[in-house]
């Protein structure tokens, strides 16, 4: 049992970046087609990755690389927590640590661009973290446990009762995928800018690590979305993929908004959705 689980985790850890990289390749292709361009090949992200890996180790600060390792390791740890069906609340905290690492990576340089990016990334954390924590509480209210394994044990999909939070999580996905209108701290594709926010000062292998972490992150996020429908799981995965495609569509029809607007929107609409959702569950189930 232990060995089987271990092998499964290992498989996910190896497979996640491959699938994640491919997803980003598809992203670039579809986005290009939407904009009437031809677009790079699907495996372009891997070309980029290995190209970056082969470059010289260059840094602008001595602490920068520590934080990018932290970002990667905590992202992987969050994914392992998801795969092992562990505590969802703790998973959110670990994901928060990963975000903090990225911010500190930006702050550790003496670069105005990285600083702006880091400050904005911090605001992005402020925008999405409450929604994820509310999701954890809603899952508890629904299932009586914070464990992801408990979600898998339920026959009725979470989506039926938690659909308002599902909507909120969708825009968390937009923020996390760095898509318009929330591509604020740095954007996923180079839009107008080439100097790219919080990642400005990363180059070469360290920048490759950043990409690797992003690949893990997309799998983690889609995994969280698929939790909304776990029996059978393939429905959840389809929902997650649909959400992914929806993000590409949103990215191409919206323009970037400001940080303040994002936080206000998230703290009003997102929280209201979450609160209504939790209140509804309490109303139907009662506080035990």
């Amino acid at each position: 049992m232990m060995i089987k689980q271990f092998l499964f985790v290992l498989l996910i850890l190896v497979g996640a970046p491959i699938v994640g990289g491919l997803l980003f390749g598809i992203d670039r292709k579809i986005t290009a087609r939407m904009q009437g361009r031809y677009g790079p090949p699907f495996i372009q992200p891997f070309y980029d990755f290995f190209k970056l890996l082969g470059k010289e180790h260059i840094a602008v600060s001595r602490m920068q690389f520590v934080w990018i390792y932290g970002y990667l390791v905590f992202m992987i740890a969050s994914l392992v927590f998801l795969v092992m069906k562990s505590d969802f609340l703790l998973l959110v905290f670990l994901l928060g640590f990963a975000g903090v690492c990225l911010v500190l990576g930006g702050f550790s340089t003496k670069s105005p661009y990285a600083h702006f990016g880091a400050n904005r990334e911090l605001m992005q954390i402020l925008a999405y973290e409450p929604v994820l924590l509310l999701l954890a509480i809603a899952i508890y209210a629904q299932n009586g446990s914070f464990l992801i394994s408990e979600i898998f044990r339920q026959d009725k999909p979470l989506l039926f009762t938690l659909w308002p939070l599902f909507l909120a999580v969708l825009y968390v996905l937009t923020i996390k995928m760095r898509k318009s209108p929330f591509d604020i701290s740095t954007c996923h594709h180079g839009h107008q800018e080439i100097v790219k926010g919080v990642t400005t000062e990363y180059s070469g292998p360290y920048f490759a690590l950043y990409h690797l972490a992003e690949w893990y992150e997309i799998i983690l996020l889609l995994g969280i979305i698929s939790l909304f429908w776990t029996n059978p799981l393939w429905v959840g995965i389809l929902i997650a993929l649909a959400a992914f495609l929806l993000e590409l569509f949103i990215d191409n029809i919206t323009a970037r908004m400001t940080v303040g607007w994002m936080v206000r929107l998230s703290w009003s609409v997102g929280l209201i959705l979450g609160i209504i959702n939790i209140a509804y569950i309490y109303y139907t189930k009662g506080v035990s």
Binding site: S61, R62, M63, G96, G99, V100, V103, L104, G106, F107, S108, T109, K110, A118, L122, M123, I125, L126, E129, P130, L133
Partner: peptide, 18 residues
């Protein structure tokens, strides 16, 4: 969540130049 914001800001100031 707010806790994350103010601690990270401070830590960022401290560690800026290594």
């Amino acid at each position: 969540t707010l806790t994350i914001v103010f601690w990270t800001k401070w830590l960022g100031r401290l560690l800026q130049v290594l």
